[in-house]
Design a protein around this nucleic acid. Structure first.
Lengths: 248, 248
DNA sequence: CGGTTGTTTGACGCAGTTCAAGCGGAGTGG
DNA sequence: CCACTCCGCTTGAACTGCGTCAAACAACCG
């Protein structure tokens, strides 16, 4: 179960036995967060990074007048704030959506890990690049898709990512979001989020209930969303002449 | 002039004489692109990364029905596709906005550079993290700000970034975008982009003309945009216990 | 069983889109 | 040097997606 972060990193390239042995101890120090509490807050200067072991989290940004924008969703295996390794000041907050367990990894230990096993720099860096790619897709969502496409696209992304860590079973998958949260994800008001949700249920695209989303016809949802999973770069393998090529 | 990419990397941490000597030869192989031509296209598998030496570029994504979303703006000193070092398939395109000169750096040479000077992994990785931070800000823009705030915010970001590489002089700065492009940046139609541009001129926030944007009252524009430059992480210094701390 | 949190509905208004046409400046060819 | 063309900018009018306000309802929980 807690090998999840490792399994996720290995999507880039298998780890050697040595690398694995070096990484595992770093995942031992755990923190727990209750649902709806902050893991890191805008303005903080964290001295450690965290990896999500269990539960859901999100990045978000509050504006002066109370508007909130959710920036990305974190599922088990994701690094919740790897960037704090490079960037001193948090420019957004991270919160637990459900109850969470995270591994706490002091920056100094990441530094040591990379010094002793330089390939980790590349592996973690790739993770940062993937996160940027997901951000770009959200920019396309918010800038160029209609609200119903956006929600459909979000569901597609979520399914593929959950699948990657074995958390989506068949048609349904966990969906721990209120409609207010859905609105703040796809950039519409709560009222409109409700209408989009209902419209999608009526069209037979997706149903929501008790923390679960059920999709009966994925290909229909995919085409409604215009979803193309290239940007998630799953099972793609590294570039031919790239840093991780040797081991694939 | 061509030391720009180096100067930009040194915002994170000064390079040693050795590192500098290793980096400079990589910037020697140049390519030129005419305005409005593609530097890299969605679906490509680039074997090299590029750094912008002169001119402007942008990342963009086309959708099946012709909608276009611009994902980020590149100015001299920026890496136009560093991520292709890790990610085999381009999930978006990069185009020259004006005539451009870029340095072409084969992935193998980046690999060698990092092997011989491991600190470059950290320095370039930080660049990727900064790009992700800018993407997040655009997500906030498109999801939670009104169109006029968005344009104001975009101008503020641009000014700060241009300032960082010495390309903004006083009140005015180069602004090589058509109104159609402005619309595709801030996620509105061309017609509406025109109305926003005019409204901002009337309110005395910003004037546009002949490839130049003029802002007489920056503090006014800043507050109209709700601009806070934290997310650009300029002059912030690295985290205390982070990888680049020793040299600041 | 009352309070709290999340969902649903309706009415109304506004921000932004779409379509369609006209305008002006810059470049090009005769 | 003028005429033509193209491209980008501008304008108006009708339309629509989405926001806002306000209220009711449903579910959960102590």
């Amino acid at each position: 179960m807690d090998a999840l972060p490792i399994r996720k990193l290995e999507q880039a390239a298998p780890l050697t036995q040595d690398e694995r042995r070096a990484l595992i101890p770093l995942l031992q120090e755990e923190l727990s967060f209750k649902a709806r509490t902050d893991i890191a807050v805008e303005g903080d200067h964290p001295a450690f990074s965290t990896v999500l072991l269990e539960g859901w989290a999100w990045r978000y940004r509050m504006m002066a007048d109370g508007r909130r924008q959710i920036l990305s969703i974190q599922i088990p295996g994701d690094w919740t704030d790897l960037h704090s390794y490079f960037i001193r000041t948090m420019d957004h907050s991270v919160a637990a959506v459900t109850d969470c367990r995270v591994a706490k990894i002091p920056h100094g230990k990441i530094r040591d890990l990379i010094e002793q096993h330089p390939r980790f720099a590349q592996i973690l860096w790739r993770d940062t690049a993937l996160e940027a790619a997901m951000h770009r897709e959200w920019i396309v969502d918010l800038g160029a898709r209609r609200s119903e496409e956006r929600l459909a696209h979000f569901l597609c992304e979520l399914r593929v990512r959950l699948d990657g860590v074995g958390l989506a079973q068949g048609e349904g998958f966990p969906f721990p979001f209120t409609q207010e949260a859905v609105g703040d994800i796809i950039g519409v008001s709560t009222v409109h989020a409700n209408r989009v949700v209902q419209a999608m249920a009526e069209e037979g695209l997706a149903k929501f209930g008790r923390g679960v989303c059920t999709v009966t016809d994925w290909s229909k949802l995919r085409s409604a969303a215009g979803f193309d999973q290239t940007y998630l770069h799953i099972d793609e393998g590294p570039p031919v002449d790239g840093p991780l090529a040797g081991s694939s």
